[in-house]
Amino acid sequence: MGGDSKVFTLSQVSKHNNPKDCWLIIEGKVYDVTKFLEEHPGGDDVLLSVTAKDATDDFEDIGHSSTAKAMLDEFYIGDIDTATISSTTTYTPPKQPHYNQDKTKEFVIKMLQFLVPVIFLCVAVGIRFYAKPAE
C-alpha cells in the first residue's frame, strides 16, 4: 500500500458489482477481489452480495482469520471517500441473485428427491420377495 492511494466514491465502487469486475469496501479501503472470486471458500455469491455498500460488518461477522485479513493487502486499490457513505446514501443494488445463507430448504428437497424413489424401490422389492403366492 503506497502513500499515493486513490480515493473512490461509493458511486464509482458501486459500478464494479459483477463476477467480471468486483470491488468491495472494507474498513474504508477499496479492494478489487475479482481474481479471488473463484477461490473464495464461501463462494463468489457471498462476495457479490456485499458489493455497492460498506462490507465491513459482513467481513467481521464471519470471523475471518488473520491470514484472510492479510490477504486483503494484495487486492487493495485505494480508499473510499467516507463522505459518500452514510445511512442516507441510496444506491441501486446490482441485479444478482440474493445470497441464501440458509440452505435447509434446498437440502430437504434434494434429500426427498433421493429418498422417495429409494423407498418405492424397497417396497417393490419387499413385495416381490415376501408376498405369498396365491393358492
Rank of each mutant, 00 (worst) to 15 (best):
G42P: 00
E27Q: 12
P41M: 03
N18T: 07
F75P: 03
M111P: 00
S87V: 10
T51D: 12
M111I: 13
K6T: 14
F107D: 12
S49C: 13
A124N: 06
K20S: 10
K15P: 12
F59T: 01
K35H: 13
K15D: 14
Y99W: 13
H98A: 15
D45R: 08
G3P: 06
S66W: 01
C122I: 15
Y91F: 14
V30F: 03
T104I: 14
V30S: 03
I77K: 05
C22E: 02
P133Y: 12
I26K: 08
E38D: 09
E135H: 08
K132V: 05
S65K: 05
D32H: 12
Q12S: 03
D44L: 11
E60Y: 00
I25H: 06
V125R: 01
M71W: 10
E135P: 14
V108I: 15
E27L: 00
D21S: 10
P93A: 01
F8A: 03
S49G: 02
K95F: 10
Q101G: 10
E135W: 05
F36S: 08
Q96M: 15
A70F: 00
H64P: 02
A124R: 12
T84Y: 09
I25G: 07
E135C: 10
F120K: 11
L37V: 01
V123S: 03
I127T: 08
D81N: 01
Q113N: 04
P133W: 11
N18D: 03
P19I: 06
N17A: 09
I119R: 04
T56Q: 07
C22W: 01
D73V: 10
T92A: 04
L24F: 07
V108G: 05
I119H: 04
G28P: 01
V33M: 13
V13A: 04
P19Y: 04
F129Q: 13
Y91D: 00
P94Q: 15
M71R: 02
G43H: 07
I85H: 03
S65F: 06
S65Q: 05
P97E: 15
V123E: 05
P117S: 11
A124Q: 12
H16W: 12
V50E: 02
K35F: 11
G2N: 09
A68C: 02
E74M: 10
S11V: 06
D58Q: 12
T82S: 13
P19N: 12
Q96F: 14
E38V: 05
D81P: 07
E39M: 00
F107A: 15
V125C: 07
L47K: 04
S86F: 06
T90M: 14
F8K: 09
T104G: 00
P41A: 03
P133T: 12
K103P: 10
S5G: 06
S5Q: 06
P94Y: 15
D81W: 04
G63N: 05
P94F: 11
L112T: 09
D102V: 15
P41T: 04
M111L: 12
D81I: 01
L10F: 11
D58V: 11
V46M: 08
A68M: 10
A52I: 07
T67I: 05
F114R: 11
P41C: 01
L37K: 04
S86V: 06
T34K: 14
I127H: 11
